[in-house]
């Protein structure tokens, strides 16, 4: 197969596709901004965090722990624990990343994020292999993330949606909607059930961090791989 490795057209395609998902990211970004303002972080610091860390759940958890002076080790470990799931995404994207080097590779690794990852996997199954697609999707999400968290910081003092407000449901709706293009058919049923069965108790007993996501990914992967071996698939 001789698909292009990294094109401007792919970049534009990825950016366009991911803007649809950015709607799910917006309330999350606003929350990060509001929380950061509440903890006394400046607008610059909020932008720096969203721009460099670019991982919503870990930022929310870290801001929850934030004190003055900042607890460096605690928030760094929180980021590591919540984002460990990304260590599983890189290998799953190997067919894309293997053909890239330099800034194209590192840029894609830096911009790796749940929503862009899911889009790339779904499009990859339809034959998309353009590293530009991945980069465009990640970069558009990064811009949206930065804009939303800065807007959240600015609104921080005026906007106070309560914790259970349905606006926050958009973040969950984004993940639910990404399940649809990821579903390949019957072979996914058992791995997905296993993932849910493992995620529930882990989330219950280890509510901090995102261990349930890592555990679910590993459980689903194992059940899927054992299923393929049993069926004698290649």
């Amino acid at each position: 197969m001789n698909a292009p490795t990294f094109t401007a057209a792919g970049l534009a395609r990825g950016a366009r596709r991911s803007l649809a998902v950015a709607a799910g990211l917006a309330p999350f970004g606003l929350v990060v901004g509001v929380l950061a303002a509440g903890k006394g972080l400046s607008l610059t610091e909020t932008g720096l965090m969203s721009g460099l860390v670019f991982a919503g759940a870990s930022q929310i958890l870290a801001l929850d722990l934030w004190t003055h002076p900042a607890p460096v080790l605690a928030v760094s470990f929180a980021a590591f624990a919540v984002n460990l799931r990304m260590a599983l995404m890189g290998p799953a994207l190997a067919p894309w990343l293997e053909r890239l080097s330099g800034w194209r590779l590192w840029g894609n690794l830096f911009l790796l994020v749940d929503h862009g990852f899911a889009l790339a996997i779904a499009e990859g199954r339809k034959g998309e292999r353009d590293g530009g697609f991945l980069f465009g999707a990640g970069f558009a999400l990064w811009c949206a993330w930065l804009a939303c968290s800065l807007a959240g910081h600015l609104l921080g003092t005026t906007l106070h949606p309560p914790r259970g407000h349905p606006l926050f449901f958009a973040a969950l709706a984004a993940f639910v909607s990404l399940l649809v293009p990821l579903w390949r058919g019957r072979q996914d049923a058992l791995p997905w059930l296993a993932a849910a069965a493992v995620a529930l108790p882990v989330a219950h007993f280890a509510p901090h961090g995102a261990w349930h996501v890592v555990a679910a990914a590993l459980a689903g992967g194992l059940v899927g791989a054992f299923g393929e071996r049993r069926r004698g698939a290649p």
């Binding site: 799931r85 599983l88 995404m89 290998p91 799953a92 190997a94 749940d114 990852f117 899911a118 996997i121 969950l172 993940f175 639910v176 990404l178 399940l179 990821l182 579903w183 390949r184 996914d188 791995p191 997905w192 296993a194 993932a195 849910a196 493992v198 995620a199 529930l200 989330a203 219950h204 349930h212 996501v213 890592v214 555990a215 679910a216 990914a217 590993l218 459980a219 689903g220 992967g221 059940v223 899927g224 791989a225």
Partner: peptide, 15 residues
């Protein structure tokens, strides 16, 4: 790794 993406998002959504 082929099964990781779907399972990962199930892990988010189920709890």
């Amino acid at each position: 790794l082929g099964y990781v993406p779907g399972a990962l998002f199930v892990g988010y959504v189920a709890p």
